[in-house]
Design a protein around this nucleic acid. Structure first.
Lengths: 161, 161
DNA sequence: GGATAGGATGGGATACCATGGGATAGCATG
DNA sequence: CATGCTATCCCATGGTATCCCATCCTATCC
C-alpha cells in the first residue's frame, strides 16, 4: 500500500466540488470503495482523510479493544458518526459537505496534506502558518525521529545495488 | 462488508415512517432480509440498529461463548427478546414502533448514526449534545487511537515463523 | 520550440433520493 | 359478518447530487 505524501492545493468550485489529487487517488487504487472518507479533526481546524480500508481496520481493532478501553470505544464511535464516505466522480472530484468546509474555514481553495497512512485537508493559509510555527520550534529544540526496525528479512530486493 | 458511517437526519412523517438513508441501505444490500433490526439501547436514550446478518453473528457467538460468559448469554437474550425486524417499503422507509420512538424521545426527526458494524437512531438534539461532550474531552486529553498494524504485504503477519 | 497526454476546472442535463398524501389490503375487534 | 384501524403500496414532487462533455492548464517528450 502506498503513502500519502506532499501537499497539493486545489480549487473548490461553486458546487463545493474538489479534485482529489491524482497522486492521492492512485494511492487508494484497488480499494473496494472508490473514494475517500473524511471527518473533522478533534484538535485542529482541518479535515482528516483516509481510505475505506483504513476505516475498516479501525472498525476491526475497535471490536477487539472495546473490552479493554471504553474511551477507545467512545472515540472511534465519534469518528464513525462524524465520517463521511465520499465517492469521487469520473473526473476524480468529491463533493465536500458544508460543515466540514466550515470546520476548516475552507472557501476558495483546499490543501491536501499527506500524512503517510492518512492525509488532511486544510485552508492553505492556516496550514502554512502551522508549518512555519512547527518549523520554528523544531529549530530551537531539534526533534528526534525514531524509526521502528525495518521488517525486512533478506529476500526482498531491498539491498543497495 | 460495508460499514455504517456518518450521521444522517431524516424526518418522521405523520404516519411514523422514516426513510432509512440510502447509504445505510446499500451497506445492507445483498442480505437475505430487506430491512433493519431495531432494539432499545440498555444504557442510552437511543435505538440500536443493525442488519439481520449481524443478529445472526450475535447468535452464533452467543452459542460459542455461553460456557465462558454467562453475562454475554443474558445480554444477547435480552437483545433478541426486544428486537424487531422492520422491512422497508419500496421507497426505503420503515415504520418505527411507538415504544422505540418513545424510548429515544423522537418526535419530528431522527438521526441515523453510524457506529461501524452497527448504527443507532437518536433524537438529533440529544445526540449532538452527547457528541459535543465526547469531543470536548477528546480535545483536552489528546486521543491516542492505536490501530492494529496494517496488513502489510510480506512477512509481518503472525510473528516469526 | 512545438506537440501531446494527463490532470484540473466549469457548466448543463439527468437520475436518484427524501418526502407527502391518497388508495388499498390485512388484521383485529365488536 | 360488519366495522374500524393500521399498515402497505403506489404515484407525484422538489431538491440535490451525479454524470457527461467541453475547455484549459501544465509538465513531459520529441
Amino acid at each position: 500500500m502506498g503513502l500519502f505524501l506532499s501537499t497539493i492545493i486545489n480549487k473548490v468550485d461553486r458546487k463545493g466540488r474538489v479534485s482529489v489529487p491524482a497522486q492521492f487517488r492512485s494511492t487508494l487504487a484497488g480499494q473496494s470503495f472508490s473514494g475517500i472518507v473524511l471527518y473533522r479533526s478533534f484538535t485542529l481546524p482541518c479535515i482528516e482523510g483516509c481510505g475505506m480500508d483504513y476505516m475498516q481496520r479501525l472498525s476491526d481493532s475497535t471490536q477487539e479493544l472495546a473490552a479493554f478501553s471504553p474511551e477507545h470505544e467512545e472515540l472511534s464511535s465519534l469518528i464513525f458518526a462524524d465520517s463521511r464516505p465520499l465517492p469521487w466522480d469520473p473526473e476524480g472530484r468529491i463533493l465536500v459537505p458544508e460543515d466540514l468546509l466550515a470546520h476548516a474555514n475552507i472557501t476558495e481553495t483546499a490543501a491536501f496534506v499527506g500524512k503517510g497512512q492518512t492525509f488532511q485537508i486544510w485552508e492553505p493559509g492556516a496550514h502554512t502558518a502551522l508549518l512555519a510555527d512547527i518549523r520554528n520550534r523544531a529549530q530551537k529544540s531539534p526533534p528526534t525521529l525514531r524509526l521502528s526496525p525495518a521488517p525486512r528479512p533478506g529476500p526482498s530486493n531491498g539491498g543497495a545495488p
